[in-house]
């Protein structure tokens, strides 16, 4: 039996037996990514909607900038946050480097442009349809934001899940600002990199299985939500 096959069996056993070391890593990953996506949503949903509604000089540049930042390489985001949070950096006094908080910050930086840019697209499209009616009702732009975000809710769930996918799958940023410290800042992706390098394939594979399952579940949920919405709301 080849070594990798053997490793696969051990990996499955690790997952199924809920190995405590593996569970800790999974939980920290989820905690960091959920927190990052939550914070990013609070900022990016209204920001994206505002970008869709307001016309101002330089708007085009900002739109292109956010679109471009969707492809921001995680290591660059990590490096930037590292420089900001390092002792000599402008935010060094808070001592956040190599903590889960630093990882949250890095993931927010990665996810924010994705949610902002995609939200802007969705809201712009919806507002194109609603504009005359909302103007007729005498609504200010500010008051339109919650209306449009709510009415675009099913499309936005997909947007948020795209953000979550990005956050949970990236490795470069959390590696740089978290440091992959065992029991403190070790998440699924960084652990996979480390264990693979060390040759501990079962743990790496086990984490890989969990990560894949998670992504599949998230996408399955997105599909179900989208289909239900299409059927129910037309």
């Amino acid at each position: 039996m080849p070594a990798s096959d053997n490793a696969f069996h051990t990996a499955l056993a690790l997952v199924l037996s809920m190995d405590p070391a593996l569970i800790d890593i999974v939980l920290l990953s989820l905690q960091v990514s959920f927190t990052a996506v939550l914070i990013a949503c609070l900022l990016a949903l209204p920001l994206g909607a505002a970008l869709a509604l307001w016309a101002f000089p330089g708007r085009g540049v900002i739109v292109v900038l956010f679109n471009a930042l969707m492809g921001l390489p995680p290591v660059v985001a990590g490096l930037t946050v590292y420089l900001l949070l390092s002792r000599a950096g402008p935010l060094g006094e808070f001592g956040l480097l190599f903590t889960p908080s630093a990882m949250v910050v890095a993931q927010v930086v990665l996810v924010l442009p994705i949610i902002t840019a995609l939200t802007r697209q969705q809201i712009e499209e919806l507002h194109h349809e609603y504009r005359e009616q909302l103007t007729s009702l005498g609504m200010s732009k500010l008051r339109r934001i919650p209306t449009l975000l709510w009415d675009a809710r099913f499309g936005l769930i997909t947007v948020i899940l795209a953000g979550f996918g990005r956050a949970s799958a990236e490795v470069g940023a959390v590696m740089i600002v978290g440091g992959n410290i065992d029991g403190v800042t070790r998440v699924m992706t960084t652990a996979i990199v480390l264990e693979t390098a060390k040759g501990d394939l079962p743990l790496a594979l086990g984490l890989g299985i969990v990560l894949l399952t998670l992504v599949a579940v998230v996408n399955g949920a997105a599909y179900v939500v989208g289909e239900t919405a299409r059927r129910r709301l037309g």
Partner: peptide
């Protein structure tokens, strides 16, 4: 108020479309 050729209705129930307009005014 204005009624359009193709009615623009919110992605909510019929009832919620009405309570929404009342909320605005």
């Amino acid at each position: 108020a204005m009624v359009f050729q193709r009615p623009v209705l919110l992605r909510r129930s019929a009832l919620a479309n009405l309570t929404y307009a009342l909320g605005i005014n």
